[in-house]
Every structure is written in C-alpha cells, then in structure tokens.
Design a protein around this nucleic acid. Structure first.
Lengths: 152, 152
DNA sequence: GTGAATGCAAAACCTTTGCAACTGG
DNA sequence: CCAGTTGCAAAGGTTTTGCATTCAC
C-alpha cells in the first residue's frame, strides 16, 4: 500500500524497470543489516549470477535518487544502504560493526541546531556510535575485555 | 591556556613530538575549512617538502587519538579534519562542498534519541546538509538556478 | 527504433601497510 | 640506545568510467 515500499512502483517512479533494479531493490527490502554495495553485489549474484558490480552501483544510485532507499554513512569504510523510509537515525556498534535503526525525534533535534543566517537545511543526519546490546552481553559475559580508547 | 589547543602540549600528551606532527597540527589549527588528508598533505608540503602522505595520515590519526583534532564524515568522498574542540556539529553545503561548524544543543539532542535496551552511546554525530549563505546569495542573485532534487 | 541500462575491465581515489633508515627522549 | 616515527612504494578496498552490447518501453 505504501508507494515507496511497493516494488511495482519502481516502474512508475520514472526508473526504467530492469530485472537488475528489481532484483537489487528486492534484496535491499529484505535486508535489515544495511549492506554495503559489495555485500549487495554478493547477495545479488545468488539469484542473478551475471550481474556486475557496476550495475549494482548504478541500481543503488538510481534507487537513492528516487528516494526508495537511503544511504548510510556511519561506517567509514563504505557507504551502506537502508530500505527503511520511516523516520529514524542510525546506531553503529564500534565492536561488531553492525548498524541498527534507532527512533529519534527529528523535529526536536532539528530545532536544537542553530544554523547561521541564510543557511538552509535540506537534510539532517544523526549518527550514534557505541556498543550494541549483543556485544555488551558478550563482553560482560566473559569479563570486561578492553578499556574505551587508550590511557591504561 | 587551553591544553588541547596549545601545540606545546603535543609532547606532554604522550605523543612523540616530531617536527612533522607539530607541522601538521599547526596547519590544522590554522585551517577553518576542514581539509581532507590530501589537502593537509599539500599544505604541509609547502613548509616541509619531504613530508610524505603516509606521515600525514599517521599524524592525523595520532592527533585524533589524542583528541586534539576531530574527524568529520559529512563529505562522502573523504574524511576531513576539524581542530575546533568546542561543542558543535557540521553543516555540509551540497553546492560548494564547504563544511561549516554549527552550534547545537548536544544534551537536548541526545535525549531525543531513543536507544534500544542495553545499547550504550559513546559518541553522537550530527550532520546537516543544505545550502550555505554564500551559495544561496549566488543563486538568488542570478535567478533561481535549479530545483532541489528532481520532480519538475 | 532508441536512448537508457548492462557487463566487463581498467582506472581513479582514498587509505593502509611493509620495511629500511632515522631520531626524539 | 631503542621504541616510535618517517619516507617511499606497493597493495587494498571502494567507487567510477569507457565502451560495445543488450534491452525496456
């Protein structure tokens, strides 16, 4: 029912509706783990062995431009992709590298940023780094493992 | 007086006080434009022609680890560096690519992010994208140039 | 039919690494 | 003196590009 989430809307969104784009889009819709292009590529090859990396990048860019998918830049090593169009921000676990969607109050946050005169905002991105629940349990389970950053 | 901002504190911060590190640090302290490593390298070569890219990366990493400099990840193409340790977030102008420091209420923002149970935050990063004052003036000056993203 | 999309390979970037020579403390 | 740092060059990983071929509309 939601236009953005219905794969069949790919065509009517102005994108040429190729099997590759449909395939990449489907993979993303099924992925909760915010895969990077490389990971999307590997998953895409399973159902479409001839697909190329260049095509994956092409598809991802097309989907992002159409607003069907969001880019996530929390992971410094690579751009990752998120099919969740609900209002949310991202949590990056510094231990396992996992990315998690997190609820936030966008309006409240936006109002707490003081833009200089004449600056206009088109997009607000909030990224949280820290320790996810799984890694926290794993660590306390076998006794605290490492200090935060340095200073022994 | 501020420890973090005094170049002479480099040595007592546990870092070996090499001419290269002093040089790179000085360059950053003078830079308001959040240069990327490559840009730091080019500026560094002016006063120290033999310095290498690897050393620049090494210095930058050391400075970041010591908390003397912040990494900025707003620009997808490269990590950039910020010597401003005051509480602030970053604005990225999508037209000129410039990065600007922006005031924000960190505590207020932090309290508006709802972390899942057992998740812990070590760092909050807020990035704003949009149009800076200079580019806004330039555009309105010669008549609106382009629509925001698509949809004519 | 035609412009857009694909696939492949090479190139362009940014960043890291290995190692011998050097040096700050 | 010696662990840490530098410089250089080569490698690694991500993303982009050129081009002939194919395909969606």
């Amino acid at each position: 029912m939601n236009e953005a989430r219905n794969p069949d809307r790919l065509s009517s969104s102005g994108l040429r509706f190729t099997p590759q784009r449909r395939h990449v889009y489907h993979i993303l819709l099924q992925s909760r783990d915010h895969p990077a292009a490389n990971e999307v590529f590997m998953r895409a090859k399973k159902g479409m062995p001839e697909i190329s990396m260049a095509t994956v990048y092409n598809c991802l860019e097309a989907l992002v431009r159409r607003g069907l998918v969001r880019q996530v830049n929390v992971d410094r090593t690579a751009t990752r992709y998120c099919p969740n169009l609900e209002q949310h921000c991202h949590f990056y676990c510094e231990t396992c590298g996992g990315i998690f969607d997190v609820d936030y109050d966008a309006a409240g946050i936006q109002s707490r940023v003081t833009l200089p005169e004449e600056f206009s905002m088109s997009q607000l991105e909030v990224a949280v780094r820290g320790l996810c629940a799984g890694c926290a349990a794993r660590k306390s389970g076998r006794g605290r493992k490492r200090a935060e950053a340095s200073a022994p």
